[in-house]
Amino acid sequence: MKKTKILVAEDDEMTISLLSFRLRKEGYEVIAVTDGKAALEKINTEEPDLIITDIMMPHVTGLEIIDYVQKKIAKKIPVIILSGAGQEDTVMEAFNLGADEFITKPLRPDELLQKIKDVMG
């Protein structure tokens, strides 16, 4: 079976390293980018099965990524957002734009892996 391909967009080096490490361990194919603009490019070139994105990122924000995926990509790609504490308003906005799940930082890998399973059905 083809590996599930996950695009991870997060500008914090520590978070993205840990995240990619755990996802790869779990058998996922990971494409890691540290800014939103790169994320948009990879969405088109790599056609990921799932997107995990931070909200606050340089150039293009996580919200813009969700919006882009909803409006410009024909295929339904689930999106999990990473948010800091105290960003509930933004999380709500993300849900309204079509995000499927969210997880707060600091990242708890087990929780995230569970949510990925939930989202991917």
């Binding site: 914090d12 520590m14 978070t15 800091g84 504490a85 930082k105 600091p106 990242l107």
Partner: peptide
């Protein structure tokens, strides 16, 4: 600060 916060927790 908001960005470093999760790092410090980790």
């Amino acid at each position: 600060t908001h960005k470093i916060k999760p790092n410090v927790s980790m």
